[in-house]
Each structure stands twice: as structure tokens, then as C-alpha cells.
Design a protein around this nucleic acid. Structure first.
Length: 264
DNA sequence: ATGGCTGGCGACGCCAGA
């Protein structure tokens, strides 16, 4: 019997790469993901810790922004080949929320979808427009013959099974029907929501807010998603969330989420 | 129904997050 080797793709909203670098390095050393999408760097391009990540064995491409947003892609043992930064469709949009690259033969798009609060309002409108633009790009990606992963912080609670208390969140931008519909239409393009597919009816969260010891009590949301196109879904072997990262001191409010796929 | 906490910025609170 030969044991099939697997390849791990992860997404992690670090909530500040400056504050979270020790956590990030410890997690990389322990879990050894092959490709990683990071969100909420909250750092300029110049402040990105490329040298520390290289010492840890990861090459990176990144799109930073001072104070807010910021996304990056890491790959074990190589520098990803960047194919796009910034989501097409609005030249006025200066927020760093999208980066796309090829690494280890897989196309990876890393996103930090706008939060959209408060709703209604201009921030919510921006979120919906951003989702429309994402849909146009995703339609191209899903149809590629190559394996494609569209991952990141989607800021979407897909169903009431993805939140500890739907009533407490009913006015929030993350749970609004328009947002859920847009996410549903994205899946209808042919993407597989890997965590949901692997977990079935079981609860799984990726975010727990900083209040009322919600992390310790597992009162969370599932808002970080890993969507796989058909070529990559065929190879899906497992998925999970590294909740231990969230339970550490000074943790991000998100935990890393990941999929394991078979090597071709 | 509300506010609770955290990081960045920059130097005391404010903004944004989800």
C-alpha cells in the first residue's frame, strides 16, 4: 500500500501581520501548509516581513496597504508567480483585497471581501459591488482546466448553521439575504465550498469575536471559505480549522482554515 | 438592546473590524 501524499492549502486572516508574526511563524512551523492566503495585513508593502517568512521556508507575494486591508500569498519553498493584484472592474478602488498567483501548479486567488457594516449604507453598497466584480473574475477561474482555489475571508455567513446565534447577527452585513444570495450564485458557478462539503451537518467556525470569551465557548462564525473548482474538487481529501491558533494569547479573531488535496 | 475587545496610528483617543 502506498500512502498518497497530500498538499495543504490554507487561508488565515491575521488581523495585523505586525502583531501576529509570532503566531503566523509558529503555525507555519507546526502545520506546514504548502500554500497560504493571508488577509488583513494592516501594513504597507515595505512593512511586510518577507525576510522572516523566507527564513521560515516560504516565498511570498503581497499587496499591502497602510492601516487597513492587505493580502498576501505564501508558498513553501518557492515564490508564487503573481498573475493579478486587485480585482478588475473598478479602477477607482484602491483597497488591497485581491491577489492571485500560481504556486505548485495550483492557481490561488486570495480575497479579503469587504465587511460591509454598517448596513444599509455606502460600505454595504461597496460590498455588494465588490461581490459582483468577484463573480465576474470567479467565472473565468472556475472554468479553467487547471486546479483553482478561491480562498480567503469572505465576510459571508452562508447559512444559519454557520453562526452560533443567527438572531444576534440578523442586522449584520455578513448575514444579509443579498450577501447570501451573491455567495450562493458564486457557488452555482461550479465552486465547491470545501469546509461545508467535508463537515456535512457538523458545525465548524473560523471566526470568534473578542467579546465574552466567545472563542473559549466556541460561539463563532464560518466566514473564511475555501472554494475549489471542479479540477481541484476531484482531489479533495480533507478540510479543517486550526482552532488552537485562535485559543492562544493575543490571537487573531480568525483561525486558519485549510483543505488537503491529493497530489496528481 | 447594548457593549463588550483588539490593532493601527501616533501620542490621547479615534477608526474599523465582524
Amino acid at each position: 500500500m502506498t500512502r498518497t501524499k497530500t498538499f495543504k492549502i490554507a487561508t488565515f486572516n491575521v488581523n495585523g501581520i505586525g502583531a501576529r508574526l509570532p503566531h503566523l511563524l509558529a503555525w507555519l512551523a507546526k502545520e506546514k501548509p504548502d500554500v497560504v492566503a493571508l488577509q488583513e495585513l494592516k501594513a504597507s508593502d515595505a512593512a511586510f516581513p518577507a525576510a522572516a517568512l523566507e527564513d521560515a521556508g516560504y516565498g511570498a507575494v503581497w499587496h499591502g496597504q497602510r492601516s487597513w486591508n492587505g493580502v498576501a500569498l505564501l508558498a513553501r519553498g518557492l515564490i508564487p508567480i503573481e498573475s493579478r493584484r486587485g480585482l478588475p472592474g473598478d479602477p477607482e478602488d484602491e483597497q488591497s483585497r485581491y491577489i492571485e498567483a500560481v504556486a505548485h501548479g495550483i492557481v490561488v486567488a486570495g480575497i479579503y471581501l469587504p465587511n460591509g457594516n454598517p448596513q444599509p449604507g455606502p460600505k454595504f453598497d461597496y460590498k455588494l459591488k465588490w461581490m459582483q466584480r468577484l463573480s465576474r473574475r470567479a467565472k473565468i477561474l472556475v472554468a479553467l482546466p487547471d486546479p483553482v482555489a478561491l480562498v480567503g475571508d469572505f465576510n459571508v455567513i452562508p447559512t444559519d448553521e454557520d453562526v452560533y446565534d443567527p438572531k444576534a447577527w440578523r442586522k449584520d452585513a455578513l448575514i444579509q439575504p443579498e450577501v447570501r444570495d451573491a455567495y450562493g450564485r458564486l457557488l452555482d458557478q461550479g465552486w465547491t465550498d470545501a469546509l461545508r462539503k467535508v463537515y456535512g451537518d457538523r458545525r465548524i467556525y473560523t471566526f470568534w469575536d473578542y467579546f465574552r470569551q466567545h472563542a473559549e465557548r466556541d460561539r463563532g462564525l464560518r466566514i473564511d471559505h475555501l472554494l475549489l473548482n471542479p479540477a481541484l474538487t476531484k482531489r479533495l481529501q480533507g478540510a479543517g480549522v486550526d482552532r488552537w491558533v485562535r485559543l492562544q494569547e493575543k490571537a487573531s479573531d480568525h483561525a486558519p482554515a485549510w483543505v488537503e488535496v491529493g497530489l496528481v
